[in-house]
Design a protein around this nucleic acid. Structure first.
Lengths: 256, 256
DNA sequence: TCGCTCCGTTCGAAATTTCGAACCAAGGTT
DNA sequence: AACCTTGGTTCGAAATTTCGAACGGAGCGA
């Protein structure tokens, strides 16, 4: 196996710092990555030369992500049937319930949101797309984990105790395994304040032609609008939406 | 000014090859970039190690773009007020005319599409986002070029004859300058088959708080649905939509 | 089966990059 | 004004990477 190119790794490390912060100075970067100042300047100059970062004049100069990343990200998404189909299905589901609808995929022990459709409230549509959260704290994540086979799930949970996002998050791997059994049985997962104490979510699995769980669709609302009756209706809607998207991904439901 | 890091440049060059092709082999990459095979393998291994590229098993192995690019691209878009506001305005305009609406920005001599909202036809919403086209062949591009001052426009046109996308494209810089005078006078630009012989577009400028043209909004339809009456109505709609988005970007219209 | 081409990988000398030391400018404090 | 800290930049020896040569495997055609 050929060796990795450390300079490239460092450049990617720098780009990824900007996932959490919109602007950073050279000093910020050097501190966060424990790199020498000169090295950081050379890498930043390189990324700016290709517009992957944009420099913001000031004292100190700061940097922001640049347009080429948007182009590459869009190229990625544009080639993913899942994203294209999920956009329209999610819009239909959101229109039916007037709450936010998301579609996410599993990446390691996290979920990454590919699609978000908000309700008719003031639109902040793009903000959650691309976001990464711990799978075990989210309804979509629990659906995705429930779809893993035993060895894959064990690999994800191999790190021992799980970090919670709120006091309600499940942090014990064995408890999560029991919970996922229930998710499998019911076909939906619920986030009862585990990722955000003020939110409630319900999610269902999206499957592809082979029957594998490849994504999860969720419906989420602030707790002030969450009711038992609403919950039942929303579970039904998200099940239908996920089934529609699954059909578009080639899934053929068989009687069970 | 610190030196650029050539290994990083080469890695970015590789990523950018995937804007035009969804899958490429190591040999493809080596040929397109005139790099030694071993160098290419080391760079590919590095990008795969960080999931920026995904390897597709086969003979030969091929590579595709990976999820982190989507995350970085989404982070870029999520921090751009223009994208957030343009999503909702474009949706309203698209709903009013049931044709495709785009918002694009100028990058060098090209436009890059930030937002695309399709009509109620079978949805292929994401496909044009992130796409780069020559500015002078598109309605949005002509609006954006018209908004440049003379030195900036001269810099863009410094390369002499322009490459056309169709037989209708303007390829003579002087003719384009005349055309842009007309765009400035009318406040809208038209693409009469200059980027795609089967399409017609009309576009208007989006301005920010300083009055600068920062983006362009367009409405496009296939030629079979393009009529003089429709053209007038659509020019009006795109003007209104651009004005709404401009207001959201802080533009205050002054009497002229 | 054999021969050939292509592909993935390994290894180390030559080529290139890294990063510490040094310099200068800008900004802030006394 | 003087001093100190921070930030951007330069330069070259030491450290690291590049890439040609070589190897072995896979696939294809005769």
């Amino acid at each position: 196996m050929p060796r990795v190119v450390p300079a490239v790794i460092r450049a990617l490390d720098i780009l990824e710092l900007f996932l959490d912060r919109s602007q950073l100075s050279a000093r910020d970067v050097a501190e966060r990555l424990a790199l020498p100042r000169t090295t950081v300047h050379e890498l930043l100059v390189t990324l700016v030369a290709r517009s992957y970062l944009i420099s913001v004049p000031g004292q100190p100069v700061e940097y922001r992500l640049g347009l080429p990343l948007f182009q590459l990200g869009s190229a990625f998404a544009g080639r993913l049937d899942l994203v294209r189909e999920a956009q329209s299905v999610a819009r239909d589901v959101a229109a039916a319930c007037n709450e936010a609808v998301h579609v996410a995929v599993l990446d390691g022990a996290d979920v990454v949101y590919l699609v978000k459709v908000d309700s008719t409230h003031p639109v902040r549509m793009v903000s959650g797309v691309g976001l990464r959260l711990p799978a075990h704290c989210t309804a979509v994540g629990k659906v995705l984990l429930a779809g893993l086979d035993r060895p894959a799930l064990n690999a994800v949970l191999a790190g021992g105790a799980l970090a919670g996002m709120t006091a309600d998050s499940i942090t014990d791997p064995d408890r999560l395994r029991e919970h996922l059994e229930r998710v499998r049985a019911e076909g939906v997962a619920v986030d009862n304040g585990e990722s955000d104490t003020a939110m409630r979510c319900v999610a269902a699995a999206v499957r592809d032609h082979s029957g594998a769980t490849v994504a999860a669709m969720s419906l989420s609302a602030p707790i002030i609008r969450w009711t038992p009756a609403g919950h039942e209706e929303w579970a039904g809607l998200v099940r239908e939406g996920a089934a529609t998207l699954s059909a578009r991904m080639g899934f053929v439901a068989t009687p069970r």
